[in-house]
């Protein structure tokens, strides 16, 4: 196969002529800039890239990308993108969604896209609030959250998006943060290289309705103690000088955080995103508490399974390979198949 021609695209090539209309200070700006500057790296012509979104602040994203794009309806982007990706395997299809869009009204489509392993890159901007409708709690808001629609505090337990995606047997699951462009782009890179559904949760700040929701993960004074940066093949340690680590306690089902000094080095879990059984990545997803301590970011799971698109296309190809004659001849044959009779 010939070396692909370098397209020499730049960040600017991916900016559309539309005025960006998020609130000043919104985390979406940082994500947009990171995506636009990452896109040239894919070396895919712009016309073969499609962004499909649902409804919500994040779902305005496609308007700002100089690619093909569809701003669809609330929650349905994964379903629409499934039809597109399945019939057009030549395209790079990205879904941009939010916590309300993907996990509330569109929860069904999300889990089914993931279990089918449709070749979609799904970016879920999680700000733990409804922004576009002005501040109601979302399915990722913490229990007890006081919002416009829950003056006495929310009685809903939140979803853990990564646990949900892993439960749906997603083949690629990752988390990153809006403000960390380098990390965000590293996750996008891994997602883009994955064949099948890639689910990426991006912690995103809504400075109007839920400001500072992820502050501890961003503040220079706390972030090293709070964040677990997952790296494939590396022992999972974090904190100043790696003072904390993740272990698999004997007899338990999950993973736990310990002082590194208190355990022997061989007890420290070495991160392997390729573990086939989703239980390991699921245990990782359960580490953080509501206070954001012990929040892993990076690629939790990256395993190989045939994509829905590939399976569907190979069925079509197999059926075509067996067919003879022009489509019109085949149609004429089909119409006259079965019991026919002739009147002269």
């Amino acid at each position: 196969m010939a070396e692909p021609v370098a397209l020499k695209l730049t960040t600017k090539d991916f900016k559309s002529d539309q005025e960006v209309r998020w609130c000043p200070g919104c985390g979406d700006y940082a994500i947009l800039a990171a995506v636009q500057s990452f896109m040239p790296e894919l070396n895919i012509p712009r016309e073969r890239i499609v962004f499909v979104s649902g409804i919500g602040c994040s779902s305005r994203f496609p308007y700002y990308m100089n690619t093909y794009g569809m701003h669809s309806i609330h929650g349905r982007a994964p379903a629409i993108a499934t039809g597109l990706s399945t019939t057009r395997p030549d395209l790079s299809v990205w879904v941009v969604t939010g916590d309300g869009d993907a996990l509330s009204i569109g929860g069904n489509h999300l889990i089914h896209a993931l279990r089918r392993n449709v070749n979609l890159k799904i970016l879920l901007f999680n700000n733990r609030i409804y922004g576009l409708t002005k501040g109601q709690y979302s399915p990722t808001s913490e229990i007890g959250k006081i919002t416009k629609s829950t003056p006495a505090g929310s009685a809903d337990s939140p979803f853990n998006p990564l646990s949900l995606a892993l439960g749906a047997e997603a083949t690629f699951v990752a988390r990153t943060i809006d403000s960390d462009r380098k990390h965000l782009q590293s996750v996008l890179r891994a997602a883009a290289e994955h064949n099948g559904s890639a689910f990426v949760e991006i912690y995103q700040n809504c400075n109007i309705f839920n400001d500072g929701a992820f502050e501890e993960l961003k503040d220079a004074g706390t972030r090293d103690d709070y964040l677990i940066r997952l790296e494939h093949g590396q022992p999972i340690t974090f904190g100043k000088d790696g003072q904390f680590c993740v272990v698999h306690p004997p007899g338990g089902f999950g993973l736990e955080v310990r002082d590194t000094a208190a355990v022997s080095p061989e007890e420290i879990v070495v991160h392997d995103s390729g573990v086939t059984e989703p239980a390991y990545a699921f245990a990782l997803s359960r580490l953080p508490g509501l206070d954001l301590r012990n929040t892993p970011i990076g690629v939790f799971r990256n395993v190989s399974r045939p994509s829905y698109d590939n399976l569907v296309q190979s069925q079509l190809e197999a059926a075509r390979a067996k067919a003879t004659g022009t489509p019109e001849e085949q149609l004429a044959g089909l119409l006259t198949s079965g019991d026919t009779w002739t009147i002269s």
Partner: peptide, 28 residues
């Protein structure tokens, strides 16, 4: 009748069924 280039998808619900059909129409 896949040999005619027909893809059939049994979707997760009625909404996904039409959504996927619309996505396919968008793609030609």
């Amino acid at each position: 009748h896949k040999r005619f280039g027909i893809t059939t998808m049994q979707a997760e619900d009625e909404i996904a069924a039409i959504g996927a059909a619309l996505g396919a129409a968008y793609g030609g």
